[in-house]
């Protein structure tokens, strides 16, 4: 067993797990954060996407021990008790999620994109979502939602030049 301490959504959490445990299973089974989903378990579908030290990763392809001491942000850490994250709000307004299974992963990929590039082109968004498969909704409404949030953010000071 290895003892892993991860800073999850701003809070340090510790668990003792077998060394082969993935970050995804650590989050779901030890910390009861079931937002990240197990879809394919081999890094194709992106349903398990979370952010580690600010970068989006497939949590099914990372050992829990490799995340030891790092910052992990999951879908559960996006909203506060007071308000939804703008991306969550836009996805809800535009009906961007149907069955919703891919949603947590898509939203984390979108968040990682906007953190790095507040003014993405449509191609940038498509590229950012290439690792997230959706089988019901399609990507159009998701892209619209992400563009809407980016534009709203862009109205604030210091948008990044293209």
């Amino acid at each position: 067993m290895v003892t892993v301490t991860v800073n999850v959504n701003g809070e340090p959490r510790t668990a003792s797990v077998p060394p082969e445990t993935t970050l995804l299973r650590l989050l779901r089974e030890q910390f009861n954060l079931t937002g990240a989903k197990l879809g394919c378990d081999v890094g194709d579908c992106g349903a398990c996407t979370v952010m580690v030290d600010g970068k989006s990763v497939n949590s099914c392809l990372m050992l829990a021990g490799q995340a030891d001491g790092r910052d992990v942000l999951t879908i559960e850490g996006l909203a506060t008790l007071e308000r939804l994250h703008p991306l969550q709000e836009a996805f809800e307004q535009l009906g961007s999620l149907q069955c919703g299974f891919c949603g947590p992963g898509i939203l984390m990929s979108a968040k990682a994109l906007l953190d790095e590039n507040p003014d993405p082109s449509e191609q940038d968004i498509r590229d950012a979502l290439a690792g997230n498969l959706c089988r019901c909704t399609g990507y159009i409404k998701m892209i619209e939602a992400i563009q809407g949030v980016a534009r709203a953010d862009g109205a604030r000071p210091a948008p990044k030049s293209a």
Partner: peptide
Amino acid sequence: TRPDGRLHGLGQTKYIDD
């Protein structure tokens, strides 16, 4: 909009594996 859209976006919808 969908009635379940908010929980989907929050990652709070419970599927069987959850």
